[in-house]
Simulated assay, not measured.
Amino acid sequence: MRTDRVPLLWLSGPTGVGKSSLGWEIFDRLGRGGVKAAFVDADQISLCHPEPEGGTHRVRARNLAALWPGFLREGMRCLVLAGFVDTPEEVREYTELLPGAAFTVCRLRVPSEELRERFLGRGWRPDLVEAAVAEAAAQEGSRYADLCVDTGGRTVAEAAQLVLGRLGAAFGTAAPAPGRVPVVQGGGVAAAGRARVPLLWFSGATASGKSTVGYEVFSRIHRSGVRAAYVDLRQIAALRPSSADEGRRLKARGLAALWAGYRADGAAYLVVSGEADSDETVRAYARLLPDLAPTVFRLHASPATLLERVLLRGRGGGPATPGDELRGLGRDALRTVAARAAREAAALDRAGAGDLRVDTDDRPPPELAAQVLSHLGLPTGT
C-alpha cells in the first residue's frame, strides 16, 4: 500500500449482506484503537430524488469527494465506506475523483439461505428478498473487488476481525498526517435575483422523531415530482476519536459541501434532520448556506413517549441506522437516556426554539409530514 495516500476500505456486496453494520464495527474498532477513522454509508450521501442525470454512482462519488477535505482537515487517517457497486467502471467513478485515497474494495458474501434470513430479519420490504438473492448470485461472477470475504455464520464482531486480518496490520496507520487542506466554503454567495431554496430543518430531543419525520417529508416532496435532497447530519460526520467541536465543524462543512452538489443538480428543497439546540446553531449553519431559507420544525414528545421510543430502539426496533448508540443498551441505561431526552425537550420548549413546534405523541409520521407540508402551503401528498 502506498503511504502517500489515505487508506479507504470499501465494503460492497448485495442488499442485506451487512455492509453498514460491518463497516461501522470496523470503524468503531479502529477509533477505539486510537486510529482516527471516518465512516460513510453511501446510501446516506445520494438522497436526491427524482434521481439526477448521471445516476446514483455519479452523485455518491461526487459527494464522497466533497466530504473528503473536511475529514482530512480533522486528521482522518483512514475511511471506511459501505455501499453497493457492481462493475469496475462504477468503481472508477469514485477512484478518479479521489486520487488521494488508496482504495481497497472488499466484496462481502454469505450463503443464499443466510442472506434470506438476514434480509427478512431486518423487517423491511420482505418482497425484495428474492431480488437480493439474485443480486448476490450475479455478484459471484464479478471482477470489481480486490478481495472477497465470506462472513457466513459469523457475528459482526467476528466478521470485522476477519476483514481486518485480511487487510493486514498496516491498515489505518499507513497514511502520513495530512498537510494543508483547502477549506470547503459551501455554496458561496447567492446570485443576485436568484430565489432562495427552502431548507426544512427537523430538530428536537433524542427520540423525538427527527429523522423519521424529516425523511417522510422528503419522500412526499420528491414523489410529487419536485427534486429534493435529504441529509441526516449524524450520518455525514462519523469520525473517531473526535471532539464535540470537530463533530460540529464536520457537520456544518459537510452539509455545505453536499448542498453545493445537490443545488447544481437542481434540488428545489433541502430537508435536514439534526441538532438545533438554539436559533444561533441554525444561524451558524445558515452562514455557510446563503442560498437557503431555513424553517426549523422542532419536534416535541412527552417524557412517556420518549421513554417508549428509546426502549424500542434499544430492542432493535425502528429504522436501522449505522452506529445507533441506543441499540443493545441495558434497560437502566436506556431509562437514563430517556430522562436526559425529556430534560432536553423541556429546555428547548422553555427557550421557544425553532419556528414551529410539532407535537409527535401518538401521531404517525405520515400525519406529521402532512401537517408540516400544509404549514408550508405545499400539497400534503401520500
Rank of each mutant, 00 (worst) to 15 (best):
R2N: 10
R2V: 10
P7Y: 08
L8K: 05
L9Y: 05
W10C: 07
L11W: 00
P14Q: 10
T15N: 13
G16T: 06
G23K: 05
W24T: 09
F27W: 05
D28L: 01
L30G: 02
R32Q: 15
G33R: 09
V35I: 04
A38C: 12
F39P: 02
D41L: 14
C48W: 01
P52R: 10
H57S: 05
V59L: 13
R62E: 12
N63A: 05
A65T: 10
G70S: 15
L72A: 14
V80F: 07
L81F: 03
L81V: 14
F84H: 04
F84K: 09
V91N: 07
V91L: 09
R92A: 13
G100W: 03
A101P: 03
F103L: 13
V105S: 05
R109F: 00
R109A: 02
E113P: 12
E114C: 04
R116G: 06
E117L: 14
F119G: 05
L120A: 05
R122A: 10
V129A: 13
V133M: 00
A138L: 06
A138N: 04
R143F: 03
R143Q: 14
L147V: 01
V149I: 03
G152T: 08
G153K: 05
T155D: 13
V156Q: 08
V156W: 03
A160K: 01
L162Y: 00
V163M: 11
A169P: 04
T173L: 14
A175S: 12
P176C: 12
A177N: 06
V181C: 13
V183A: 12
G187P: 07
G187E: 09
G188P: 11
R194H: 13
P198R: 12
G204Q: 12
S208F: 00
K210E: 02
K210M: 04
T212G: 08
V213A: 11
Y215W: 11
V217C: 01
F218E: 15
R220H: 06
I221N: 08
R223F: 02
Y230C: 07
Y230K: 13
Y230S: 07
L233K: 01
A237E: 07
A238W: 12
L239Q: 03
L239H: 08
R240H: 08
A244D: 14
R249L: 10
A252D: 13
R253D: 14
A260N: 01
R263Q: 00
R263L: 01
R263N: 00
A264W: 00
A264H: 01
A264F: 00
A267N: 01
V271T: 06
G274H: 14
V282Y: 02
Y285D: 12
A286I: 12
A286R: 14
P290S: 04
V296H: 01
F297L: 08
A301F: 04
L312T: 02
G314W: 00
T321D: 11
T321G: 06
L334P: 02
R335S: 12
R335T: 07
V337T: 11
A341Y: 00
E344G: 04
E344Y: 03
A347H: 08
A347G: 05
A351C: 04
G354V: 11
G354C: 14
V358W: 00
D361T: 10
D361S: 06
P365E: 15
P366K: 15
A370L: 03
V372N: 13
V372S: 10
P379N: 15
